[in-house]
Design a protein around this nucleic acid. Sequence first.
DNA 1: CCAAAAGTGTTGGGGATACACCCATGA
DNA 2: TCATGGGTGTATCCCCAACACTTTTGG
Lengths: 232, 232
Amino acid sequence: MGKKNKIKNKKIRNQINQAPLTAVDVVIFTVEEKILKIILIKIKSGPLKGMWAFPGWRVKIHETLDKAAARELYENTTIKNAYLEQLYSFSSVKRDPVGRIISVAYLALVNFIDAKLKTSSRYLDIRWFPVEQIPRLAYDHKEMLNHALERLKNKLEYSNVIYSLLPRKFTLSDLQKAYEIILQKKIDKRNFRKKILSLNLIKKVGEKRGEAYRPANLYSFKKRKFSVAEIF
Amino acid sequence: MGKKNKIKNKKIRNQINQAPLTAVDVVIFTVEEKILKIILIKIKSGPLKGMWAFPGWRVKIHETLDKAAARELYENTTIKNAYLEQLYSFSSVKRDPVGRIISVAYLALVNFIDAKLKTSSRYLDIRWFPVEQIPRLAYDHKEMLNHALERLKNKLEYSNVIYSLLPRKFTLSDLQKAYEIILQKKIDKRNFRKKILSLNLIKKVGEKRGEAYRPANLYSFKKRKFSVAEIF
DNA sequence: CCAAAAGTGTTGGGGATACACCCATGA
DNA sequence: TCATGGGTGTATCCCCAACACTTTTGG
């Protein structure tokens, strides 16, 4: 190996050593059985093998962050069109013991029925966890979760994002419960209905849902598309 | 050069070619002469030479994004402790004609008196520009500016960040003007004073500021530290 | 005494909150 | 007929917005 090549090689190595790599991690929320849940995966190798973390992967050279997050969501849930939003970029120098990796966190909201967890050779395991029963997380993912929860709560209060957590048809009680679960507070039924209906975002469909007792009216969102409006 | 080395070299190259690099860009706001201004630099080389853009640079291997942004701010203004907040990460594949670079945008608020623009060999020029008179910007920096303005306006309405745009002592009229400049709307004087004083964030100091006519009371923030509160 | 900016209160409306009872259905 | 969740209306409060005149100073 010639001296010239040695130098070139060293230069390239330096470039790698001086440049943090970038990854995307996705915090995927759903509501099921009156519980707010997230997807965690079990790390397959490296010093953190066996720990739980959010699904995530390096950003490829030809894809945007949004695309990377959407890919990650799809590969784990088979969901293609969920609500997906960039959260924050995490960059502690020591956050990943393997190397210098900056992680751009994303927030995803999916409805439980559509989300089919897909086991992947990349992970040892993948599961839904209630937000209230989270194991110790790898990296700085606990912090990431806190950011995500904060953002979710805020977003709920000034937008209609909650539509993405619910099935197409739902009762007003379902909707109220979803709000209560995420915001972690009781809401007055009458005030809730007044407010929601006055926003004109949902419409009745047909009177089903007579599981027992008096059947409830079913509603659906007029537009299943993110929009900002005063909600609570 | 042996075959083994060739392969190794190729592998390293691939690693570079497959990994987007990460940079930080800082949108630095100030208010001067009743005008909202930002710092722009003129690009020194490459295909975008001569165009204006936000100051920014690659993230070093040993620094966090916050540190990189603070460094960038310091190198351009000599300011060490301004309000600095991560905005958003931009990642279009073609945003930089030179290569694949993801940019994490930061928002900085400085007061004009403290900010001494420092010419750097990295740029052809550096200047304050009124937000209303911005030249065509390089990269996706126009979009970045829009995000920054949006964030600034929102932040103003639910926090005390504006302290970082003002000198230590100011009159209520100064404060009101700053709000009006950024929010781009007239505010009623009596309602403004009622609201601001009720928040208990500022206190009187001494009655100066008698430039002409009736002298105004000077105020200062009780805490020059970011905090969230309902404002407007 | 005049010009210019500083300073000061009251009123009305809208949205949020608090609160309790009747209704429809299945068993 | 009863148990269960579905569904409805009113009174109050507080925050925000609208609005105009007096005060203090320098020249």
